[in-house]
Design a protein around this nucleic acid. Structure first.
Lengths: 212, 212
DNA sequence: GCTACAGTTTCGGCATGCCGAAATCTGTCG
DNA sequence: CGACAGATTTCGGCATGCCGAAACTGTAGC
């Protein structure tokens, strides 16, 4: 598989991310927001991606990945998550520091180097935030998970995944004692961790996934 | 020090490389050849670099680095060589395989990650090809060295440095038993390694440096 | 069934980095 | 000293990725 330009990889990765834990295809405007670009820019790029067979898109409709596009996206995600895991396990990074570094390295690392890293780490299948690391063949382990925001009050589960998007949030959570693997119950705008009630920042609702 | 764009780093690195083992400033045409670009492109870019205070250049003249430019160039070289050392020492690369990977990673690695790598390796001061690794403060250990091509017949010295530019050459040399640290005598279009005469590829003359 | 509006696309424009052809300069040789 | 060769620069052009303003769609609500 030929490597794509960083910009293309970012588009594919973002489209993929949108469907990883939910189901629906992404709209151009949502994609623009996620990428921090103007909608018109996204329209143009999506047209090129469609011409390249990476994405399918009908005018005024939502965007989804083709098989080829999905394969490329998964490869980028694999690189990102293996790099994050490596940074934490071997290079002395904490989990809230790895995102930006991985964001750059995911576009720079060769297959050869990635294989070395994977090997050294013993082929891990989760990164430090609980995200599944796609296998080299593109298969991704999938679990039933509920976004905290969408969980009903009283729901109890273990924290399966915490988005690495905001490092401030990760530090907050760490300070509150919430980590991947913690068991919590959902309360109104907060969460019960054992017997203590923990208030959460506003963006936690869309960043934490619990087991069903 | 603000990071520069990859293109700018490549220009600075190449200008620096030209003066690292010799003395004279580089001409626009030589720079164009090294970078694989048209001379007109180099002229334009050099104008921008000069405006940014990274390079000094008078019309129709040679190009040299300002103090700021040198500092940035040295930082890139440091990243490149530390990455190469890391790839060989920890990631199972051989010395002829590291160049291309380092060429990409030198633009992608943060100061934070570089510091971790440096630390893990115990602050090495040479890379696998014998090139000095600039210190974090920008100082570079310098040795008296003679380019093989310019060494007189009969000159005997140890191999201090072998350019990593051509991996084919590195493999040839390895097969011939020539490595950094080998002691050789210069003969006509060849070299004496102990008592065996070793013919060298044409490009070896500009790739190998011997102790004076 | 029609209309309004939110979302999407088109269009002209801008910056960057590159190229080739043409103009210009410099140093050298006669 | 003057003209030539080779190096350098200028100039017009091209591709990419981005933007804002304006034109267009499709659907939700009346």
């Amino acid at each position: 598989m030929k490597p794509s330009k960083p910009v293309v990889e970012d588009y594919l990765k973002t489209i993929y991310a949108h469907t990883e834990w939910q189901a629906d295809a992404i709209t151009p405007s949502a994609l623009a927001v996620r990428l921090g670009l103007a909608p018109s820019t996204v329209t143009e790029m999506v047209k090129k991606l469609a011409a390249a067979g990476l994405v399918s898109h009908v005018r005024y409709g939502a965007i989804s990945l083709t098989e080829t596009g999905r394969a490329k996206a998964v490869a980028v995600v694999r690189r990102h998550r293996l790099v994050e895991t490596w940074l934490v396990r071997e290079m002395g990074y904490s989990w809230d520091e790895v995102h930006d570094e991985a964001e750059v390295l995911e576009h720079a690392i060769s297959d050869r180097l990635l294989a070395s890293i994977d090997e050294r780490l013993g082929h891990p299948d989760r990164d430090p935030h609980g995200d599944p690391i796609p296998a080299a063949n593109g298969s991704v382990r999938r679990e039933r998970a509920v976004l905290l925001e969408e969980a009903e009050r009283g729901h109890t589960g273990t924290v399966l995944r915490i988005s690495d998007r905001s490092s401030a949030l990760l530090r907050d959570l760490e300070a509150s004692g919430i980590d991947v693997g913690s068991t919590v119950s959902v309360d109104e705008g907060a969460v019960l961790l054992g017997s203590t009630r923990v208030e959460l920042p506003a963006d936690a609702g869309t960043a934490i996934w619990l087991s069903a």
